[in-house]
Write a protein that binds this DNA or RNA. Structure first.
Lengths: 240, 240
DNA sequence: CGTGCTTTTGAATAGTATCAAGGCCGGTGG
DNA sequence: CCACCGGCCTTGATACTATTCAAAAGCACG
């Protein structure tokens, strides 16, 4: 079957994967045995918000958006993830997933169940450690974003959303081009506003020579300007 | 010296402390040897934003606010912490602390240095695991708060800030009274607005019979109403 | 009993969301 | 091939919400 193939963790090429980085050879073998790898088509739902937690997902290849729904079901994008990163880690050892996840392009996802995970955690301290450090970093970023949401203007929040798209996906070799099919609505649910406003401020950003928009192609021509604005929100260091 | 006393981790009464929960007896002994416990007076700075990271802090007793400074140094409260919780964990294995921390009342804080910590992580998998789960939970809360910041009105954000004060500190046995010296400015830097607005909306919340304010005493009389509003922002479960 | 701080409140202003109309574009079916 | 449909995008007008500024009142503390 083409859509379900178990990639061997033992000779996995992904350098970023936490399984690979933290587990002993015999555990790589065990996990390979236990896990399932599934191909999701672009637009397909990987995790359903509120569904029971069975385990954790590791992105073997592809791009994914992670979101929660808020007031009146309004979508808020929590995070963008790609090859080598993980999904559903907020749910581990809890009842239900607090987030939903959708593939943004055709993606291969490896799934490992709860029991296998908790056994792996106890016997591979580096695995747990690596994951702990990942959480720590995500927490720092999330809290920084919190501050942005609280203090930035919409114009700035949209700058930030574009940078987030650019950092997580995008950029065809030094071209500053965001290489992902995005919509005004997607940008809006990162920035915490609505598509109308995004459209308005994209026009303004264009006028201010910070971005270029040619049809579907978005190019961040003045990345420095964007980063300078963001820096004015942090004390003495850069993040995100 | 009265302000520096090493509490023995081996017979520590705190049930919430991660050291206690996750470390072996001999490691409890080692950590007791290595750590320093310092008494901070109310208002005293425990961690300076942007200063180099030397280790992690464990709150033996007391209440602490954790914040970052944003645009024009505007303070944003990231988190409130109390007895049994930790500080400076966002900085571990990084260059500089992304946050500052100030004691809100007289507090005893245990400090453990980086080297001791990383050795403890490798040899006490439960310690690492417990801490990982803590990060995971903090991450989930932070991301939920992110959504609140993006979608709530100021009136609602202030409700949320009051609930946060109430949950983390406060409440004299079922009285619904927030038991912490807070200022309009503190509430503002949780909610992401300014003291003026807080004052305005506190008056409104009072008019709407949701809170009572008698001098310095704040009482949340209609806690259900507050929780109902918050619930309309989450999909299928409650958090925070 | 000042002095300096926080709090309250009003008025002006700025910023944002909402609504509605029209344009653009790609896909579908005649 | 062309007409039509439905989606997303753009843009203006309007209403609403939030911030800022300023002035005055309250309060804590020496």
């Amino acid at each position: 079957m083409r859509n379900v193939v178990n990639h061997q963790c033992n000779d996995c090429q992904l350098k970023g994967c936490f399984i690979n980085k933290g587990c002993s050879p015999q555990w790589l073998f065990k996990i390979t045995e236990k896990k399932t790898c599934i191909k999701y088509k672009s637009g397909q739902q990987i995790i359903h918000e509120g569904s029971p937690v069975f385990g954790m997902y590791f992105i073997y290849s592809g791009k994914v958006k992670v979101f929660t729904s808020g007031y009146n079901g309004k979508e808020q994008i929590v995070r963008l993830a790609k090859t080598g990163q993980i999904l559903g880690h907020r749910g581990y050892a809890r009842e239900k997933y607090p987030i939903g996840a959708v593939a943004l392009e055709d993606s291969w996802i490896c799934f490992v169940d709860n029991d296998t995970l908790s056994a792996a955690f106890l016997e591979n301290s580096m695995f747990t450690y690596e994951l702990m450090m990942y959480y720590s970093d995500e927490l720092r970023k999330s809290e920084a974003r919190n501050k942005y949401m609280a203090q930035m203007t919409v114009y700035e929040k949209i700058m930030f959303a574009l940078l987030m798209l650019y950092n997580h996906f995008g950029f065809k070799e030094n071209s500053n081009i965001v290489d992902i099919p995005y919509s005004r609505g997607d940008v809006a649910s990162i920035a915490g506003t609505n598509p109308d406003q995004v459209s308005r401020f994209l026009a303004e950003l264009k006028k201010d020579k910070i971005i270029e928009v040619n049809g579907k192609v978005l190019k961040l021509v003045n990345l420095d300007k964007i980063r300078t604005v963001l820096k004015s929100y942090v004390h003495s260091f850069t993040n995100e």
